[in-house]
């Protein structure tokens, strides 16, 4: 275990700049997720930390060692590939033992014992003698995880580890990952393009965009206080409107919708857009009960199990609203789209 310190990292492939001055510090034992759309440089960053790519400029330090220029096998790290990269010609046990064998950690009996222990952590000890080709995708994923943790690396990196699993398995694995991290306290860097995954798993989310950090912070901060329209959009806020404030009147969507706001809301206005999260909007037929209520027309409703998502038009603006299951019947009768003042967030210009 160690801290990971990335300083002013740049990477160019020919004329294409993939990383443009990334700086990031991950504390010992923290679980940090790198979140961003594909092509934002998050995988490249991970490959540089692993030593599979070399940076064009900048430094990477694991603990207090600068590892730039160091061969991947000399760094005490583990990288779990999206493809899992299990060795098809080795048994599950030999796969998990491989990092110990390559690092000459103890004798063979000790290595096998530690491999069995790691397999037990992912509930696969009874599959030790199988070959990877005989396992399901979910089982392969857990073998890859066991292999990544078996040597207790200084930095554990997971590249989209859950993306090849179906929804049910994915949620199960999220829980397991959290429990495993709580148990081993490995410094973990987690790459994903899924904001739900990033928020549910990590202590800190680093949102990347075009080779730079767009915003970083605890998951709830990114969720509640996105620093830009990109961050708000990426964190799943669907209702972002250009906003202007004159006196105490707030106008959304170039004047399509105007309403009076109290002084505390006006005080946080910072010149840019306004954001209304989907789950902060309600559909109601008693508009008097709410701070702001606009007559709205439901265009589509999608039932999502525990909740339903509505697409609505109000004053010519398109809204998305998410409603919990117990409120669906009421929402279906709704004539107005409504929200509280404290649901309004602003983005800087």
């Amino acid at each position: 275990m160690a801290t990971l310190k990335i300083d002013n990292l740049e990477k160019r492939f020919g004329a294409v700049a993939v990383l443009r001055g990334m700086s990031l510090e991950i504390e010992d034992g923290a679980l940090v997720s790198l979140l961003g759309p594909s092509g934002c440089g998050k995988s490249t960053l991970m490959r540089i930390v692993a030593g599979l790519e070399s940076p064009s400029a900048g430094t990477v330090a694991i603990g207090d060692r600068n590892v730039v220029g160091m061969a991947p096998e000399k760094r005490n790290i583990a990288l779990m590939f999206q493809s899992y990269a299990l060795f098809p010609h080795m048994t599950v046990s030999d796969n998990v033992r491989f990092p110990l064998r390559m690092r000459n950690a103890g004798g063979r009996p000790e290595q096998t014992e530690r491999a069995t222990e790691a397999l037990a952590m992912v509930q696969l000890e009874s599959f030790a003698d199988r070959f990877p080709g005989q396992l399901s995708g979910g089982q392969q994923q857990r073998v890859a995880l066991a292999r990544a943790i078996v040597s207790r690396p200084d930095v554990l990196m997971l590249d989209e580890p859950l993306s090849n699993l179906d929804a049910r398995l994915r949620e199960e694995m999220q829980m397991e990952l959290i429990e495993l991290h709580r148990r081993l306290r490995l410094t973990t860097l987690f790459v994903t393009h899924d904001q739900d995954e990033a928020m549910s798993l990590s202590d800190k989310v680093v949102l990347m965009r075009e080779g730079r950090i767009e915003q970083e912070g605890p998951p709830d901060t990114l969720y509640d206080r996105p620093a830009s329209a990109f961050a708000a959009d990426f964190m799943g806020a669907a209702n972002i409107f250009p906003a202007t404030l004159s006196g105490s009147t707030l106008s959304l969507g170039d004047g399509a919708l105007s309403f009076a706001v109290p002084a505390d809301v006006a005080a946080i206005y910072c010149g840019g857009a306004a954001v209304l999260r989907q789950e902060d909007l309600v559909l109601t037929d008693v508009p008097e009960d709410w701070d702001v209520a606009v007559p709205a027309k439901i265009r589509t409703r999608v039932f999502l199990g525990g909740r339903a998502r509505y697409r609505l038009t109000a004053n010519g603006l398109d809204f998305l609203a998410t409603v919990a299951k117990r409120d669906i019947a009421q929402a279906d009768r709704g004539t107005h789209l409504a929200w509280r003042f404290d649901a309004i967030r602003f983005l800087p210009r």
Binding site: L52, A71, I77, F81, S83, F87, P99, M102, R147
Partner: peptide, 17 residues
Amino acid sequence: SADLEEAARTMGASFWR
């Protein structure tokens, strides 16, 4: 897959190994 070789490198194996 080239992933296999890269994965082995990150697990402490030199090129020849």
